[in-house]
């Protein structure tokens, strides 16, 4: 068990900056998720913690020890990969045993530990199979067992669920979270899937273009986004971001007119989540662009000027397209961002 500190980590590939000046404290036993679009530097960050890549600059500290100069194989870190990375020539039993052998753990302990790890991921009856004879979900569970078997200080998981289908992903998610709570191992988890991030994380780190955009609990990230990037990245469908003008306590954009705090002025972006919009009202005057019933909720898209606004409507809401419609925004849940995309805070 260990905490992790990243101090001013920089990773450059020639002129390209993969990670820029990243500082982050990860607490002991924390489940931290690095979230961002592909190419944002989240996997690079994780690989640097693993020791598979060297930072160009900065310090990585695991359990109080600077590990920059320590080779991956001597860091007490276990990693789960997107493509499972099971050794194809070995049985599942041998796969799980591999880290025990490599780390010189006495052979007498192997069998019990392997079986315990396999039980934990419900893979006990597949131990003598080769990875090729398992399904995707079983392979990923085997990879998890291989990671937990040696009780490392840190778990690193690089998009471990992205090769699985949606249903399996959900059940694996719960299993991973349960396991992490049970083992109390500090975990860094990389994903581009915000649902995974929201459901798994103690804290989420949102990254874009190699830089941290916001660090916070899932609730903070959702209800208090620091900038338009975070606002637009989290939520499904994401927050509506409407560019317009604010003056004299009123925000206007084509088809949109909403009261706003007096200190919000000039060219700003209004953010409103689909669930904070209501059919009926006069903040938005537009036409119905599309209606998508999903069963428990109906998504309504309204065209205001040239901007499409997503609204979470009642489950039984139905409409033809091009019908004029009015939408009301919940004034308590309006977010305003300045021209650079940063949140305008203050007397809201």
């Amino acid at each position: 068990m260990a905490s992790i500190q990243l101090k001013n980590i920089v990773k450059r590939y020639g002129a390209f900056v993969g990670v820029q000046n990243m500082t982050l404290d990860i607490a002991d036993e924390e489940f931290l998720v690095l979230l961002g679009p592909s190419g944002c530097g989240k996997t690079t960050t994780m690989r640097m913690i693993a020791g598979l890549e060297e930072p160009t600059d900065g310090e990585i500290i695991i359990g109080g020890e600077v590990v920059n100069e320590i080779d991956a194989r001597d860091r007490d870190v276990a990693m789960v990969f997107q493509g499972y990375a099971l050794y194809p020539n070995m049985s599942i039993y041998e796969n799980i045993r591999f880290p025990l052998r490599m780390r010189g753990i006495p052979a007498s302990e192997h069998d019990a530990r392997i079986r315990k790890a396999a039980e934990m991921v419900e893979l006990g009856s597949f131990l003598d199979r080769k990875p090729g004879a398992l399904s995707g979900g079983q392979r990923q569970r085997a990879a998890l067992a291989r990671a937990v078997v040696r009780q490392p200080q840190v778990f690193l998981m690089d998009e471990p669920l992205s090769n699985l289908d949606a249903k399996l992903r959900q059940s694996m998610r719960v299993q991973i979270k349960h396991m992490q709570r049970q083992l109390k191992v500090t975990t860094v988890y990389v994903t581009h899937d915000q649902i995974e991030a929201m459901t798994l994380a103690d804290r989420i780190v949102i990254m874009n273009k190699g830089a941290i955009q916001q660090v916070g609990t899932p609730d903070e990230i959702y209800s208090d986004p620091a900038n338009t990037f975070v606002a637009g990245f989290i939520g499904s469908p994401p927050m509506n971001l409407i560019e317009g003008n604010a003056q004299n306590g009123r925000f206007t954009a084509p088809g949109v007119s909403v009261p706003c705090p007096a200190h919000v002025r000039g060219s700003v972006t209004l953010g409103i989540r689909p669930e904070d919009c209501r059919v009926g009202g006069d903040h938005v005057q537009g036409q119905v662009y599309g209606v998508e019933p999903t069963g428990d909720v109906t998504y309504l898209t309204v065209l205001a000027g040239t901007k499409k606004i997503e609204v979470k409507a009642a489950r039984d809401y139905r409409s033809e397209i091009d019908v004029p419609i009015g939408i009301a925004f919940d004034p308590a849940h309006l977010y305003f961002f300045d021209e650079s995309g940063q949140r305008i805070r203050g007397a809201e």
């Binding site: 690989r47 693993a50 020791g51 598979l52 080779d71 991956a72 194989r73 001597d74 860091r75 870190v77 276990a78 990693m79 990969f81 997107q82 493509g83 990375a85 099971l86 050794y87 591999f98 880290p99 490599m102 780390r103 291989r146 690193l156």
Partner: peptide
């Protein structure tokens, strides 16, 4: 051979020769 396989072996504690 996927690079991941080697990365996995390395984090599992294997040397280059292994």
């Amino acid at each position: 051979i996927p690079k991941e396989l080697e990365d996995a072996a390395r984090t599992d504690g294997a040397s280059d020769l292994r």
